[in-house]
């Protein structure tokens, strides 16, 4: 009987552990990232003006104009399309695609790749915080 109880307690413990993990995996990584940007000296993140930045064009080495919207489009609740490969890019708005913002590592990877691709440089902590705030509010 005592042994059964121990098994029960252990099972409940494991179950709670798994639930906790799945909640953590499904949660937004945005708050944690904003905190990290603040630690780098950025702050007062705002979505103001991001809409204009989104379509601001920069000339790439190949002579073509590039902006965030080249691949992601202008309606962020809709899918975009990779400029070269044509692969569908899921929406950027947190409200319709929360899965996109669950992993800090993934967000960092894409900020690095895409800021360099579109703007030819890495984005600052302030810019990244503003972008995340913008996606969060859409």
């Amino acid at each position: 009987m005592k042994r059964n109880l121990r098994v029960l307690v252990a099972s409940v413990f494991v179950a709670v552990l798994f639930c906790g993990q799945s909640f953590a995996a499904g949660g937004s990584a945005i708050p944690e990232m904003l905190k990290a940007f603040e630690a780098q000296g950025a702050g007062n993140f705002s979505a103001d003006g991001v809409k204009d930045l989104w379509v601001r064009e920069f000339k790439a080495k190949d002579g073509k104009m590039r902006s965030c919207s080249t691949c992601h489009g202008t309606d962020l609740t809709q899918s975009g399309k990779h400029a070269r490969t044509g692969k569908v890019i899921d929406p950027m708005a947190l409200s319709v695609n929360p899965e996109r913002f669950t992993k800090a590592k993934k967000i960092k990877k894409w900020f690095k790749r895409n800021c360099k691709w579109a703007w030819g440089r890495e984005c600052t902590a302030q810019e990244k915080g503003n972008f995340l705030t913008y996606f969060k509010g859409l």
Partner: peptide, 12 residues
């Protein structure tokens, strides 16, 4: 990877 056929595909 930093210039992957014109795309940026950098990884850590």
């Amino acid at each position: 990877l930093a210039d992957h056929f014109g795309e940026n595909a950098e990884l850590d």
